[in-house]
Amino acid sequence: MITDLRRRITIETPEGVSFTIYLAGPFTRFLAWLVDCLVLQAAAWFVLSIIGPSTMLFGNVSTALMILFYFASSFAYRIGMEWRFRGQTLGKRLLRLRVVDSSGLRLQLNQIVIRNLVRVVDAMPVFYFVGGLSMLINKRHQRLGDLAANCVVTCLPENGAPDFDQVLPGKYNSFRDYPHIEGRLRQQVSPQEADLLVQALLRRDGLDASKRVQLYRELADHFREKAAFPDGATAGITDEQYLRNVVDSVFRGRR
């Protein structure tokens, strides 16, 4: 079963497990397209620098080759790259995008060819006006080529499992001495609040120092209201350590 939501598709497998495909937006796709254009220009420049001097020797045969290269490369590059790298050109690779079958199945060569041929209509009349309009209207951000080929362009997550050392306390969690208050804390904290907390800690290094202190203080105050630990458990610990203890208590304690 496939459920369409804005910017994501949820697919339920026959095993009863659901997973979500996160769709790429028009702007990210535009950036990937721009990178691919630069790559094609660089390749054209490279071929020109090789074939160019040979026009002295081979005359119009070299010119013919250049004409055919310019024409073929615009289609062959995207089709070849998306086939070889499972839905990724260099631009998409850089932007962590991938073309996938809209049902979550493996992308077929036919689909890749069609989405790249219908590109000529998407590019009409200038600068992908038709394709851009289609992406804005369509819930799955599909241009016409994607629609004809049954494809969507997805955002890929970061490689590898997340680094949990960033989140968990790393030192003794004084809250564990009060299991009944920990229990109340787990009861009070909603999944959304826990999500927010984990994200705040995972993004620690990306936050400006003063803003981070302020954010952690506000978060710590928020979670202090959920369950009040005695002074013995909180004395001398920073707001950040308080939050790490909360994460440890919430996650470790769920059984």
């Binding site: 697919i11 997973f19 996160y22 979550g104 992308l107 970061e158 997340p162």
Partner: peptide, 21 residues
């Protein structure tokens, strides 16, 4: 336990790729 989105997305990606195969 919806509070751990990073691991969930990582697993979703793995399952999606395996599902396709």
């Amino acid at each position: 336990f919806s509070a751990e989105p990073t691991t969930r997305r990582y697993l979703e990606n793995l399952v999606a790729r395996a599902y396709a195969e």
